[in-house]
Nucleic acid binder design. Sequence first.
DNA 1: CCTGATCTTTACGTTCACGTCAATTTCGAG
DNA 2: CTCGAAATTGACGTGAACGTAAAGATCAGG
Lengths: 160, 160
Amino acid sequence: MSAGETSLRIGDVARLVGTTPRTIRYYEEIGLLPEAPARHSGQHRVYTEEEVERLREVMRLKHLLGVTLEELKTLLTAEEARAAVRAELRREDVEPTRRRELLAEALGHIERQLDLVEHRSAELTKLHRELTETRGRVRAKIRALDRAGREPAASAIIVD
Amino acid sequence: MSAGETSLRIGDVARLVGTTPRTIRYYEEIGLLPEAPARHSGQHRVYTEEEVERLREVMRLKHLLGVTLEELKTLLTAEEARAAVRAELRREDVEPTRRRELLAEALGHIERQLDLVEHRSAELTKLHRELTETRGRVRAKIRALDRAGREPAASAIIVD
DNA sequence: CCTGATCTTTACGTTCACGTCAATTTCGAG
DNA sequence: CTCGAAATTGACGTGAACGTAAAGATCAGG
């Protein structure tokens, strides 16, 4: 057919995103990935580059947020909806009113994701700060010890 | 006995950190928590405030880093070692050489944790940036629509 | 000393997120 | 058309991280 349609099968996709066919089928099974991507001629699932990207995003979110696939599904309602929005918006004949609705919806989804990410980010940052402080204290003690090694003095180092 | 020793039992600890007794026993079982904290008079486990803090930290790391309990155990070797270091350092009769060794070791552990946290943090930040950008684009489209609503003009809005 | 609440160990059950067979089909190259 | 590689559905298996139930021991208050 045309040039831009790299027809991918489940094994290819698995290799591309670093997972297994079973996992991909499982994700489809639980509704994380859209129902059986158009089996073009026969039975085998056929994926587009776009769907590969989707899967990449899924696995990334899973890894980063460490949420269950069920929570992820909820979260991805956002992505799904946005995809729908994109599809509908691509048709230029939608009325501005409807168009605004769709965009507002998309915005809401994005903001939900952002909230989650920001929350997680803040927690991580806090932990990071704490660790850095501790490291600073330990380093200070080491330096103090090194100094004491060169100058003979009675130094009472308080720990922690 | 003395004043500062609030004798806590497993149920109390569970409520304090927001988990269940079973989970605490399980963590002890797999070696995530130190072996049976000194059952003072009879059979029941007795915890100190310090151990509660330890558990809090465990659950926090688990939540934030989303690692398996096995990985967490490895990570917590750091904490354990640091605790040992603190204990040994508290005795003032350790030689400066040994003292330096211990501190260096502690430093290494902390840096391992920091690496992990920083890595995770960077990924999250990246995701955050992407989301923010997308949100910006969506907002821009909405504003464009709102403007177009007031001025009658042929506006071809390209989506995504 | 009694009692109800809590804790003990032991052991089997459960959910999630896939892994792993097995028996059949389907696909693509020759 | 043929044949091997890869995909399909279906089913059962598995490891992690606990939940839950049972039967007895222990603790704190009255």
